[in-house]
């Protein structure tokens, strides 16, 4: 299974190369964020090119979640330039910000399913709110399609409280994929899952990226997931990017701190 995944990834890369020069869809310059007297982000710079999957590694509490929350305007940064699709998000008004958000999918660390709604309603809710003129049958078909994508078609009528952590993550993923985002921000999609499920999710991420040509930032502590899904990795320490490269390059790094992630 692993082999096919790697092949799938290589194919994806080749396809992207054929598209010619890749323009960045996300660009972050000098991002600072401080909570009370706790400096979390201390001048982060990074870029994500179209179709690329950037993995962010860093110790727990290093501000990885804060970083991607800044990108969708959930947290307002103290300083720094954040560009998504070439537009500075701190300068967008509410309407423009919402237009941008429709193109960005966000998978929360704890899935954040609406727990008063069943799985079906969780998936139907964003469609009902955002795609008002879509016919009902089309919505139903879409719901079934994404559930099939994440391999949970039979959970359609369950309540989120009945789902396991891994199932909830996959439904969360389905809920964001149903809106066909151009950029995906994954916050620890595989944490707390067994190796098998974790592989399945990595595989799913690769497949979805190929299927819908998604650019993404993926936060993880799970090295196999990083190895399978990453085109490039950045490492965050004390609020700054300290290392950057492909999995292979970083694995062979001399830096003790960098190496500590790989073993």
């Amino acid at each position: 299974m692993e082999e096919t995944m790697i092949i799938a990834k290589e194919e994806g890369k080749r396809e992207r190369l054929e598209h010619g020069p890749e323009e960045p869809v996300i660009r972050i310059r000098g991002l600072y964020k401080c909570f009370k007297d706790h400096q979390v982000l201390n001048g982060v710079d990074l870029e994500v090119k179209k179709g690329e999957n950037l993995v962010v590694l860093g110790k727990s509490g290093s501000g990885k979640s804060v970083l991607i929350k800044c990108l969708v305007g959930l947290i307002y940064p103290d300083a720094g330039d954040l560009e998504v699709f070439g537009r500075r998000i701190t300068e967008l008004n509410e309407e423009e910000l919402n237009e941008m958000r429709k193109k960005v999918g966000f998978l929360f660390q704890n899935a954040a399913l609406y727990d008063s709604m069943s799985v079906r309603e969780n998936l139907a809710f964003p469609l009902r709110q955002l795609k008002k003129d879509m016919p009902r049958a089309k919505k139903e078909a879409l719901i079934e399609e994404v559930l099939d994508d994440v391999g949970l078609s039979d959970a359609i009528d369950q309540m989120p409280s009945k789902l396991s952590g891994g199932q909830a993550k996959r439904i969360g993923l389905a809920r964001t994929l149903i809106l066909r985002p151009e950029i995906m921000l994954y916050d620890e999609p595989t944490t707390g899952l067994d190796t098998g499920t974790s592989h399945e999710i990595s595989d799913l991420i690769i497949r979805m990226r190929k299927k819908y040509n998604i650019s993404s930032i993926l936060i993880t502590h799970d090295m196999p997931c990083a190895r399978l899904t990453s085109d490039r990795i950045v490492m965050l320490k004390e609020g700054v990017v300290v290392a950057e490269g492909t999995y292979k390059e970083l694995e062979g790094s001399d830096d003790e701190w960098v190496k500590s992630f790989f073993y």
């Binding site: 660390q109 964003p126 955002l130």
Partner: peptide, 11 residues
């Protein structure tokens, strides 16, 4: 984070 989830999906 359900409220945040609504917000990021432009609801």
């Amino acid at each position: 984070e359900q409220i945040d989830a609504m917000e990021v999906s432009a609801i």
